[in-house]
Design a protein around this nucleic acid. Structure first.
Length: 110
DNA sequence: CGGGTGACTTTAC
DNA sequence: CGTAAAGCCACCC
């Protein structure tokens, strides 16, 4: 099909999707990867986010792993920021995990 | 071109 | 709950 993803497009799409995550919602690496058509490479989403963190407009704290665990917090300036921000947005935590049942947001496929 | 790394996921033990 | 391995693919050296 016409869905060829160049690596540059891949980064753009990740930025786009993450920036579209609504307030009080979270999504997962796998979900984003799936939306991009690379579902077996969720790790690449994380890699894109790593580059994306240079872009301050990106709410990377709303992206968590499949369990809702804040695996990315280690890459934040302070590991507490991610948890704090999410809690401020009204996101419910179960121990260290986000309640994906309530706050999971499905990214759009474009 | 090859090897190491990684903000993932799943299966296996 | 713990570690290990494999699959995945971009980036760096």
């Amino acid at each position: 099909m016409t869905n060829q993803i160049s690596k540059e497009d891949f980064f753009q799409r990740v930025y786009k999707i993450v920036s579209q995550i609504p307030y009080g919602k979270v999504t997962t690496y796998g979900a984003i990867a799936n939306a991009l058509g690379i579902k077996s490479s969720a790790i690449m989403v994380g890699w894109a986010l790593n580059a994306a963190k240079n872009r301050s407009d990106l709410p990377c704290h709303r992206v968590v792993n499949r369990n809702g665990l804040l695996t990315g917090k280690k890459h934040f300036p302070t590991p507490t920021i991610m948890r704090e921000l999410l809690e401020q947005e009204g996101i419910n935590f179960i121990d260290e995990m986000v309640d994906l049942k309530r706050h999971f947001w499905k990214p759009e496929i474009r």
